[in-house]
Design a binder for these strands. Structure first.
Lengths: 256, 256
DNA sequence: GACATGTGTCCTGTATACTGGACACTCTGA
DNA sequence: TCAGAGTGTCCAGTATACAGGACACATGTC
């Protein structure tokens, strides 16, 4: 059940439609925009005919949709509705969502709930603050782990080898071209683990800092994070108060 | 490709795994909460062994998740992420989401974007207003069509027979027990179509009214609606202004 | 006009995924 | 203690879904 194996080695092999479906969905997710069926089949190294029938089935069911103008297919309405069930019912996600909304309302700052998803950093829920210059990131997008304070918390307990393997080299380069040293990054992870929170300044852009706190699962591992996106020019006093409030949310969401 | 056919007539028939998957997802969506695999197989009239392998595959892929405490399965994180792609990329949904947010901000009233989904009324996106008593409904939930102003707009152009078939009898009963007369309901649909908007008072509860405007697709049919949830005790003047603003959003989102 | 490239549909044979049943467990409650 | 119900895994046979290719059509470009 490898999610992305367009079977490069064995050209002759029947795939189960389950696997094909999973490959299609995962490909679309990474691709991030619509694609024509032919191109999709080629990208997955799948037979065109099978791809047609599968995509048609999924489209008929509403999980995928076809763009009327150029025939590209992409995720559909029903996929969205099904997905909403998760955030509504999953206990952690549900509670975290409420907590993020409350945190944003109380502090007036942009708040986020983040998890590692398949080895990539993902914003699961976000509530913008009410600052005039609106700091925000798109929900559901995947961002290089080293760019974020949450990422440093989420890697707590990972071995040096795990970390080196998990982070592709290109993810160490920031949007402005600077490159993060892997050793400093690992030090930051250990520091974050010791302190129980993490603050990063000016990584993604020069005017924001990111303050993150861990959410622990029942096994004591960091399962997710909750974080605030702030302007860099806050006083120590303000930052301290925000951190206290954030830690309260962190405790509230952690198991036990 | 009938979404919900647990093959009641032909007990002996192999199903394609695609269809089984679609049945599973649809069932979970309607069920609304986790279910154990055995019960799922029974509910779908599917063989237990097939259900196990399928569900395990989907779980491994993250589309479903197993509750650690009681083993119930439900939608997973990945389903949510995939679904987010839809709302982010689909042009109408994307634009409607922005418009709803803007409308809520400008008016301070709870705003919603709604569509018919598989013959049921669905709130696709909602932004709460800033009234102290917060009026809101859950996103993604499906609500009986006759309870809503948007529902009356969405049925524009449907024949009497279509409407009678689409609306189950129980959906005509309001939360407080009153029953809507089907003829009055159809009259209201025609009135809404003529006027290009719809106002309903005190349907779901006594203190709210709902003001909805249609969003027309390229084919001139009502594809979705945008609506405001308001307290009933507004002045005619206030209601008029809100309606004008709402109609502006409606025009902006309609094709052409 | 000829050619290359892509799209959507249909058909056939065969590799194999699905089914049904059996098995070993774990809980319940009587 | 035993019966009943449910869970999770494994196996073998066969119905059938998938792969591969052919076809007709639409584009674009030389």
């Amino acid at each position: 059940m490898n999610l992305l194996s367009p079977t490069p080695d064995t050209p002759q092999r029947r795939e189960r439609s389950v696997d094909r479906i999973l490959q299609i969905l995962e490909f679309l997710h990474r691709h991030g925009e619509g694609i024509r069926i032919g191109a999709l089949a080629k990208a997955l190294n799948a037979p065109r005919s099978s791809t047609y029938t599968l995509v048609n089935d999924l489209t008929e069911a509403g999980l995928l949709e076809t763009s009327p103008e150029d025939g590209r297919i992409f995720f559909g309405k029903r996929m969205y509705l099904y997905g909403l069930n998760y955030i509504r019912e999953n206990s952690l996600a549900k509670r975290a969502r409420l907590e993020v909304d409350r945190l944003a309302k109380e502090t007036g700052e942009t708040s986020e709930f983040c998890m590692l998803q398949n080895g990539r950093y993902t914003i699961m829920h976000m509530r913008p603050g009410n600052r005039p210059f609106r700091i925000s990131s798109a929900v559901g997008l995947q961002i290089p782990i080293p760019w974020t304070a949450s990422g440093r918390l989420l890697l707590a307990g990972f071995s040096r080898a795990d970390i080196a393997e998990l982070i592709p080299d290109e993810d160490l380069m920031l949007p402005d071209g600077r490159v993060i040293d892997i050793n400093e990054f690992i030090d930051a992870i250990e520091k974050a683990q010791r302190e129980g929170f993490c603050l990063t300044k000016g990584l993604v852009d020069a005017v924001t800092q990111c303050l993150a706190a861990p959410i622990y699962g029942a096994d004591g591992k960091v399962e997710a994070t909750i974080c605030l996106v702030l302007p860099v020019d806050l006083s120590d006093d303000q930052t301290g108060q925000l951190r206290d409030r954030l830690m309260e949310s962190s405790r509230r969401l952690s198991a036990q």
